[in-house]
Nucleic acid binder design. Structure first.
Lengths: 222, 222, 222, 222
DNA sequence: CATGAATGAGGCTTCATTCAT
DNA sequence: AATGAATGAAGCCTCATTCAT
């Protein structure tokens, strides 16, 4: 249903428009505009202009502006969550799972920074976020993560004497803040595609490395 | 001028009002309202009602609504930053410094959750945040943190083979997300004061512990 | 062309749809919706939904929403007026004519309250009502009535020393307000059909009785 | 509280504006505009222009456009009703009471036709009219009238063998329709003030006369 | 300093109408 | 004839800001 965060849709959409194509255009345009100006500063007319459709058509597909944001959340976030939960259910060591997830998230940001900005920054500010459904959706991310960590503890890959919840928060928080600092452009990211890809992979590995091995070295300098 | 995030202001503000007392009331009320409704949803009249003053008076003390947020940021954030930089310049091992900082931040949230919500969630969404002055203020936090980490690396307390910037992001991100999850009430926090204090200290120590020692144990299971 | 207000249309409209059947459905649906929500609050889409057709189709049969109301007025009102004028031209004492008319009107309301509501309440509020054609149509009702009253005066059935126009207004106004009070459900109307019919006939006769004999009695107490 | 329908306020409102004067201006302007264009066609900007105030001030005094109409009803209608109930409670024969009331209503229309138009035509079309409070207010008029009629029956001034409710509806309906036909300018009304006053008095007396004596003459021609 | 009435631009939303299929 | 997607003008309402007192 939702485009995966991991797949980049082809942009060569020309001649014969498929069903529901305008709706999709509105969602995509909304993400762009929300990411650029923030939800509250984004006017519906901005969205319509970005989507190159008439003003009123937005209201043909969505009840109001709030519902656009909620829809983005529901359709995009769930795809994102599904991918993470799939990794968690899959094989591989915790290290591999964590690297996969970190890479997934950072790559999503690399390819669709606006999606991530909106999901991370806008949604939690929206009034709809107070709704149980959305709170629960975020909780699902935490839980998926806790499950991965706890799985590692049970299989002996991770030491058992730390709180899986704190561990999950630490890992996700690291990725979150890295993304935030990237959004804020604190630090410089390579422009060129290959270099950028390598950069993000390196960051992902470092996060996992610190998460697994700590910062004091295997020989325990501290 | 600014109340420190680390000190709890006395609440016995009664009888003869000092100079600038109304101004302070407006700032404090703004924090409460911004935290509750978000900056954009907060009306000037809400702030005035919270501060129990006429809303025209807000414009005696501040040029406009944006300036209130900017002022909050400048006065509150700088106090916060000073405290962290002081810890960084002070003595003690990296471990102690990190525990101090984590405790500082978590305690600030414990005592003044609205302050932290506003500083973390609202300010980066405001248009003013695009201003160099504020971007720089955030950068200062990262730099203060990098300095601490790098100092630890130079003194041999931390291993030298990880990027201090990633390390800083990981640590701060962990704290940030723990706070966010607390905001979202994912997980239950003790109600009673002593237990709450203990809970936050425990969380701070676990974060530091994972940051320093990793999650795989001294015997390197992974 | 127009259904008469006095005849109840058969409801067994099924299988093979005749020409103009959709047009009629739209008119009937419009009356229902206008009566329920008022002309301005009624959306074209409401009408289409009530008629169970696509709302674009409305514009095949009518130029715009105003024209629907105008058509209702022209087709329904004229049938109504014809019936009244026929009674006026017919034989019988004034008393019989008045009872016939009062019964006609009250029965119309009994059987098709929505029609009457729309004719009475909506049409005079619409901008189209300002048009001479419609003003004239209402004038025709007054004139038809004045003619009946004046005829009674000429034949000596009614005393000659009152203004026929005021008399007409009094009689019609009485019926109008009785209807309005019925609309407002001030007073209780029998549910069962026979009782309801009897109730309305009784009301009609009382109106005529007061109109003819006054309220002070034959012995002239006042 | 409400200006009486029977008293014409002085229009020489100049220099120092009293409290609540703007609110009153908005109400009066609304009546003018509602009477001229109808409630739905009346724009809030029309009201503001008519009242010569800024757009937004309307919302300082009223929650929305609906509330303006409801306020008009509550404040104007109650004054009107009080006057009628006072006449009913007062001394005098039924004839005198009825003439007083008919004159009151017709004079109100003569002096403030817009008030009457709005009270009679607009209010019953508004969505708020469905509210019990307003239905009840209308019911009060009917009841006040029934009480007068029934009082006349009990004192032997009116014959007892007709339904007071029908009698009330007949009398009020006559006045209502006379007003409506005046609104619609069916028939010509004298322009000059004295002649106009005499004309309305004459109409009032004729209505009462027919109501009391009927249209068949004391000697029973019919 | 303090008040809150007054202002008016901005933006969301509705919905009659058109148009491509 | 029939559909309903698409259009965009119109109008209500909000609320930051100004101003007279």
């Amino acid at each position: 249903m939702a485009r995966s965060l991991t797949a980049v849709p082809s942009e060569d959409e020309s001649a014969p428009r498929p069903r529901g194509e305008k709706r999709e255009r509105i969602l995509e345009a909304s993400i762009q505009v929300f990411a650029r100006k923030g939800f509250h500063r984004a006017r519906v007319s901005d969205i319509a202009a970005e989507a190159e459709i008439a003003y009123g058509l937005v209201y043909h597909y969505f009840k109001n502006k709030d519902e656009i944001l909620a829809t983005i959340f529901e359709e995009r976030w769930s795809g994102f969550l599904d991918a993470i939960e799939a990794i968690g259910r899959g094989p591989g060591t915790v290290r591999n799972q964590l690297v996969s997830i970190a890479t997934l998230i950072l790559n999503a940001f690399r390819l669709r920074p606006e999606w991530v900005k909106v999901l991370v920054l806008e949604i939690q500010r929206s009034s709809r976020f107070a709704e149980p459904a959305q709170q629960q959706a975020v909780a699902r991310l935490f839980e998926a993560f806790e499950r991965i960590v706890r799985g590692g503890q049970e299989r002996g890959e991770l030491r058992p004497d730390f709180d899986a919840r704190v561990g999950a928060a630490l890992f996700l928080g690291a990725i979150d803040l890295v993304i935030t600092s990237l959004v804020l452009k604190v630090g410089e990211i390579p422009e060129e595609d290959q270099a950028q890809r390598a950069y993000y992979l390196d960051v992902a590995q470092q996060i996992v490395d610190i998460f697994l091995n700590g910062t004091t070295g295997a020989d325990g300098t501290a």
